[in-house]
Design a protein around this nucleic acid. Structure first.
Lengths: 190, 190
DNA sequence: TGCAAATCATTAAAGGCTTTAAGTTTCTAG
DNA sequence: CTAGAAACTTAAAGCCTTTAATGATTTGCA
């Protein structure tokens, strides 16, 4: 009965590791409890429920991802920054598939607002400023970046590109395409 | 004990409806059995296991989606075709969120090959031919289309765009961006 | 027509996950 | 040193998956 020293933070970290090892969908309260060598019930003193546990993994992942991206883009602008952003994003998803899956969890508005989500948006906007995308168009361009990166990484992770290789070239083309789109962004109503 | 007339097809259809109503993750063998007013165990005479049931929903959705897209693009070319493709894709995802989620299920290679997946790729290639994208680049361009559409629709469905509205304009811009990218596709090694 | 084999469905049961309730041990602050 | 808070445990109920054994219903062929 020595205390195991369970805290919400340690739980989230353990759950994140578990997610990367066996998949986010297999992150259960039971599995995390086993990893801590603690009874399942005791977890419920630290997290509200199984969903809460998963949300914590999501927040952890969003923060880590934002850190990585921030590191990658500082000191760069234009296509350099775009590529650095994309590469950091993709690398994180490849190195931490479980965490990445968690980061795509639907969060309720308040939770989302207090997450690193806004930091992601801010970094995207910083890149767009470099491209001269007008303010009132930035929301749309942020969405294009987010959609494209997420879409690529998500299809790549789910094995959609395995049949015929050369994922790298596809990624390069994707970055090129975004660069072209941002450089020729349609001014207000074209 | 009157027979309920359960068949793999009817199960898949019921599961698809259930998915659209309550979410794909809540499609359980138990829930489908209840909907058929049949004991859970009897389902296992028709599907191998719960995963098999979900795969069947995925195959159903992929086929339906391919039908919709095919309808939309026939008789069109260039940007018209691109927009029709995208709109059909997005509309399906919006009208059938559960089925769409199912369609993104990871399939093993053989199953994927026998699914409507190849039809999707073929329709994408048809569009690319209209844009004059060279053969050896088509795989990459197909991936860009798939990534972008999936990414947008997926983020939109998961509520990522709710905070600040005007999803429609974002979608228009996304289609414009793809059009630009395809028209200026980098010939082999630019 | 009539019955045997193949089908379809049921009950039973084991094993896992989630969550709550109630009780016990370990800290820690006064 | 001791009481209350905090951390854990066991117990139990409810739901899901899957397999096994059993009973009912078709179906098609003598």
């Amino acid at each position: 009965m020595a205390r195991a020293g369970v805290t919400p933070e340690r739980l989230a970290r353990a759950a994140a590791e578990l997610a990367d090892e066996v998949g986010f969908d297999k992150v259960t309260a039971s599995a995390v409890a086993r990893r801590f060598d603690v009874s399942v019930a005791s977890l419920y003193a630290h997290v509200a429920n199984a969903h809460d546990l998963r949300v914590r993994v999501a927040l952890l992942a969003l923060a880590e991802l934002a850190d990585r991206v921030a590191d990658a883009v500082t000191g760069r602008a234009g296509k350099d920054a775009l590529v650095a952003f994309g590469n950091a994003y993709r690398a994180y998803a490849q190195q931490h598939p479980g965490r990445y899956a968690a980061a795509r969890l639907r969060l309720d508005p308040e939770t989302a607002a207090s997450s690193a989500g806004p930091r992601h948006a801010a970094m995207s906007r910083a890149i767009l400023r470099g491209y001269g995308v007008p303010d009132e168009e930035q929301t749309h361009a942020v969405r294009l970046l987010g959609s494209t990166f997420h879409g690529f990484v998500s299809l790549e992770a789910s094995g959609g590109f395995e049949h015929s290789g050369d994922s790298e070239t596809s990624w390069t083309r994707t970055l090129d395409a975004l660069d072209v789109a941002l450089r020729n962004w349609p001014s207000p109503p074209a």
